[in-house]
Structure formats: structure tokens, C-alpha cells
Design a protein around this nucleic acid. Structure first.
Lengths: 166, 166
DNA sequence: GCCAGAATGCAAAAAAATCTCGATTTTGGG
DNA sequence: CCCAAAATCGAGATTTTTTTGCATTCTGGC
């Protein structure tokens, strides 16, 4: 069983992505040296991946604790009704809230999983009010306070950059 | 009640962070125009925030679906014993796994919350084997398959950049 | 009101990104 | 298998950004 072979990405693209998703400040010249390509070629590939949506964006990651948001919380939300319009309303209100870093709609006992950062438990209390208690479609929610952020990133596992295809 | 006033960050730093955590490819010259500072001043502030750890890193975000990882799963893990060495072993094995994008150690009914991306449910099955079944300290785990990734990022809410302090 | 430390803007130097163009390689049809 | 079209490449040339040095301007404590 070989590799998934992502749509239109070759070994060079994957090698470039592997580096950029850890550090996108690496100059194209250095990228070129590492993947055996000229800086110009690297540049063209990066631009194409950005335009085609393989690369979603380029970000600086900020330490929440250093900007007054020392508390991270995982919240599981269960809704009353799965009516589409109500689900959509919930999705929109969760996504729009600045304290919500991530929001997933999931199968299973919960319907949503949120990851939020707040400055204090009082702020979290306020958040539960505006997002959950004010939304009458929220049946209940479960709060999991993060004690240790062991790994936090968006890096994705990339397919094996299989060497040859003689 | 004023603002949290993050340690050593002023209005300029916060304005810069607000932009960079959405897009770190914006040139310092443009940042300077937006926050009313010279490019050099912006550069010095960014470098300081990187050195002091306010900025953790600079990344390109890759769309998991476009690189053969179309499935995202949230996993809650409950351990048998909270012995420190056993917890540490679990933390290390979770953090080391490439399929694990995020890992939080939490209070409440669960002990860990993982966010993983996989190419197929078969791959997820393999992951549960190597991370959970092979670890005898894992009592049970709950799988929440993500149907919709409504919001996914690392952006943090920044304190109000309060206008004046005449 | 003065002084020291810190931060700023400006301008030059260094580095990186972007573009151009001919040469090479890859691809698909016959 | 061969050939032509299309895509990709590398090596400069050009533009833009990043980085640095320096004189000046802010800031806070005394």
C-alpha cells in the first residue's frame, strides 16, 4: 500500500510545506538548499500553494498567557434541537466570539467542541452566559479546564515523501 | 475597570500582534503605516516580542484535507492512575505522535483532550492502538469525529487597545 | 527642571522577495 | 518511439523588505 498521493503535490511541495508549517520565516533561498531547488522555483511553488488553498494562511502565534489570557478551556456543548437553522445560528455565534479560538461540530454525545481562552474564570462565566445560557438551544455544556497545554499547533502530518518511483 | 494591561506590552505592540496573528506576511512598512510607527520601530518591537516569547512562532497553516488528512477527531482520554511518571509518559507519547495536532491536559471527567488528523478511519484505528491500547494506563477514551471545522486557528483575544490616556 | 535610559525616525547597507527570459524537462498525442 | 506543446527550471536583474547605525525625541524618577 503506497502513499495517499495528495492532489497535485509532489515531493518538493511536501518538503516545502513540512518546513513552512513549522517556520514560515525561512528564506526561499534556504528552502531551496534544503529541498534541492532554486529560490525562484520554491517561490513559484509556495505562491501556487497559497493561491490554490493548500496553504490557508501565514500567522504569528501568540502566547495567550503573555497577553492576559492565561486560562484555556475546552467546552463540550450539547444542543436541544438539531434543526439546521438553529445549528447554524449556534455555529455563527460561536465562530464570531473572539474568545473562541477553535470550534468543531462533532458527532457523538457532544455536538460542539470549543477551545476558548479567557483572562479569568469570571470572564469564562460571562462567556457561558452569552454563548450558552442566552442560546435556548443549548441543552447543556461540560467544562474542561486546561491545566497543561502539552502541544498546541496546527501542523499537519504530511504523507511520506517517498524517495523514488523508478 | 480598565484593561488587564499585559506585562510590558503597550498599545503599539498589541496593534502589531493583532495584525500579525492574522497574517505575518504584512511588511513592516505597512504595519508601521497602520499603527503610526516607522518600519524600523515596528521591526524592533516584533523582534523583542519574538525574543521574549510573546510571539511563539511563525507558521504557514496547511489545509489538512489538501494533504491527505481529511478526517479530524477530538479524543477525550481518561487514565487509570494519575501517578506523575505515568502521566508524563502519556504526555510524551501523545506529544510525539505526528497525527496529534493538539494535546491538552485537563481537569474534569477527562484527563486529556487530543485533536488529531488522520487520512482514514483505519489510520485512526491504528492510532488508538498505538496511543491508547498499548498504554496500559489509559482507562478509556471517547471519540468525537469532527463533521465541520467551524473555526480553527490560534488567534488569541487581545486586550482592548484603549485609545487615550491623556 | 534635569538627567539617564529607552524608544524613535531617518537613511544607508544587507538580505530577501519578485520578476524576466532563455534553456531544459515533462507531458500527451500520434 | 517521436515530436510538439506546455510546464518548470535556473540564473541574473530589479524591486522590496529587513536590518543596522546614529542623532534626536520621549519618559520617568529625583
Amino acid at each position: 500500500m503506497p502513499e495517499p498521493a495528495p492532489e497535485g503535490l509532489d515531493r518538493f511541495d511536501l518538503a516545502i510545506l513540512a518546513i513552512l508549517q513549522r517556520d514560515n520565516t525561512v528564506p526561499h533561498r534556504v528552502l531551496g538548499e534544503r529541498v534541492n531547488l532554486s529560490a525562484a522555483a520554491v517561490h513559484r511553488r509556495v505562491r501556487r500553494m497559497e493561491e490554490s488553498g493548500v496553504i490557508i494562511g501565514n500567522f504569528a502565534a501568540v502566547d495567550p498567557a503573555r497577553v492576559g489570557q492565561p486560562i484555556t478551556i475546552v467546552v463540550e456543548v450539547q444542543v436541544e434541537s438539531e434543526r439546521l437553522d438553529l445549528l447554524d445560528a449556534a455555529k455563527r455565534s460561536f465562530a464570531a466570539d473572539l474568545a473562541v479560538q477553535q470550534c468543531y461540530y462533532v458527532t457523538g454525545e457532544a455536538d460542539f467542541v470549543l477551545i476558548v481562552t479567557v483572562a479569568s474564570m469570571a470572564d469564562y462565566d460571562a462567556l457561558t452566559r452569552r454563548l450558552f445560557f442566552e442560546n435556548h438551544n443549548v441543552k447543556r455544556f461540560r467544562t474542561l479546564v486546561v491545566m497543561d497545554r502539552i502541544k498546541a499547533g496546527l501542523a499537519v502530518q504530511l504523507p511520506d515523501q517517498n524517495p523514488e518511483r523508478i
